[in-house]
Design a protein around this nucleic acid. Structure first.
Lengths: 161, 161
DNA sequence: GGTGAAAACGTTACGAG
DNA sequence: CTCGTAACGTTTTCACC
């Protein structure tokens, strides 16, 4: 369940990660200079970290507005029954649905928290019908409209320890 | 307020974005073949989209577990007063705090929704003290512990229109 | 881990549509 | 204004130390 790729990261690796998770278009030369290694060593480490899935992906971040999806919603979903098979079906549906940007299965007041993007309210309304109305296992959901995406990112701090 | 860089994207651009937001390490040759353009044309379009901030960033996604931050929390924060200056201060604090991966200012039952990463519960507890306890403007907060990050990403669908 | 040569890649100038 | 082709400079990759 937790195939954490145990690859021991030293402080060189962490410094490299700190840079590429801000910009993976930095050249090995630039990175090498900042971390105090040769360009080839930087590349070897990056290759290893990609192989071991320490670096999970290398992506371009697209402006949602340019993509014609200026609205973001945070949705809390509560299920009727927490049956494993029904939950798996729900997870699968969320993974496949293009409007779902993020989906977390959580403890607490609700069962799932979703981050949804859409063109407008009507678009969101359509999503809720498709995803929730047909699903008899959904007890209810609560929507928060995002007015300001104060901070958005996937970067993780790598400091201490 | 909304400096959407009006750069009209045609279907070539959208196809290119669709590829690079999954993997920006695809070479121009690979992209060119898939979209039906020459490698140079692909590069030119990518350059333009980066200049116009249609592509906001190019990043490596680091596995939080490898980074020593295996836990994720979704936090709903309610403010005491919605005063502009206090809110701006809170936003600024969230932007700066390394544990805060995402922060949304929302309408609805709560005022802010945060995605927090941490090493363990103790780590999270420390965060709440730092960020919330000292802040007299915070009425309360509710925590959801993430058991399964079903879907995580920043990709936006680019279909229709 | 470093070095250097070879291969792959991105960049740019040019002519054409 | 944008394409494709081709020459050019840069970056990555790989064998070797």
């Amino acid at each position: 369940m937790s195939p954490t790729p145990s690859l021991n990261l030293d402080s060189f690796d962490r410094n490299i990660l700190e840079i590429v998770q801000r910009s993976n278009r930095a050249t090995s030369d630039q990175i090498a200079e900042q971390v105090g290694l040769s360009p080839a060593a930087v590349q070897r480490r990056l290759k290893k970290m990609r192989e071991h899935k320490v670096i999970q992906a290398d992506i371009s971040v697209v402006d949602p507005r340019s993509a014609g999806r200026p609205m973001t919603f945070v949705v809390q979903v509560t299920l009727e029954r927490e049956r494993a098979d029904l939950m798996d079906a729900f997870k699968k549906e969320m993974k496949l649905h293009p409007a779902v940007q993020q989906c977390y299965y959580v403890t607490g007041s609700s069962d799932f928290i979703l981050i949804i993007t859409g063109k407008d309210m009507e678009d969101y309304d359509r999503f809720t019908r498709e995803a929730f109305f047909d699903n008899t296992n959904i007890r209810g959901f609560q929507t928060n409209v995002v007015m300001d995406a104060v901070k958005v990112g996937l970067s993780v701090p790598l400091a201490e320890e």
